[in-house]
């Protein structure tokens, strides 16, 4: 199967947005306001932290905030001096910073970062562990959630039986890895030229 035809290609998976397992978006936004828009989304790999952070952006924009995004990951573990300089030079009082992977920062760098962002309207981060900021949501996953996502991607009535549950267990709840394995399984179904 051609990559572009694979139903589990990244672009398709990214169209699946965060699903709250507990509560409502109204409650999330209320709690965020109570926390003065300084909060952490906490959870293990593949639990939807980044997706949730992305999904907060339009909701914050509706409230009149400007969102500013930053990220760190395994391949980019620090903010370079240029990126940092440009970021702080343009940081305004109406800005809410959405910082994905903040726990990859060293303790000292994080303390400095927090101090320098005091003038912003908010700072929302994702982290594998609690403690950077008050926790807004602890992301978690369930086998049923993976099942629902698979059905959403493949279309109604196109579930894969017990397979999502098995992949959920195999990847210990990491939905990203489970969906990547489904990509591999689909890519092996037919030679690339068959899809032409």
């Amino acid at each position: 199967m051609r990559a572009r035809d694979n139903p589990f290609r990244t672009e398709r998976v990214h169209q699946v947005r965060y699903r709250l397992l507990d509560g409502t978006w109204g409650e999330v936004m209320r709690r965020l306001r109570e926390l003065d828009y300084r909060a952490a989304i906490v959870g293990p790999d593949g639990s939807g932290k980044t997706t949730l952070l992305e999904d907060l952006a339009p909701r914050l924009a509706k409230l009149g905030f400007t969102t500013r995004s930053l990220f760190l990951n395994d391949r980019k573990r620090t903010l370079g001096p240029t990126e940092r300089g440009e970021f702080f030079a343009r940081l305004g009082a109406n800005d809410v910073i959405l910082f994905d992977g903040a726990d990859l920062m060293g303790r000292l760098a994080w303390a400095r970062f927090k101090r320098r962002t005091r003038g912003a309207a908010g700072l929302i981060v994702t982290s594998h562990r609690s403690g950077l900021l008050p926790t807004l949501i602890e992301c978690r996953t369930t086998p049923e959630l993976l099942d629902d996502i698979v059905v959403q991607i493949l279309g109604d009535g196109a579930g894969l039986g017990e397979l999502p549950h098995r992949l959920f267990e195999k990847h210990q709840g990491n939905l990203r890895d489970a969906l990547r394995e489904l990509y591999d399984m689909y890519s092996a179904t037919a030679p690339a030229t068959d899809a032409r």
């Binding site: 051609r2 092996a188 690339a192």
Partner: peptide, 9 residues
């Protein structure tokens, strides 16, 4: 091009 891992469009 298209392969199993990536397509360029």
């Amino acid at each position: 091009f298209s392969g199993k891992l990536i397509s360029l469009l």
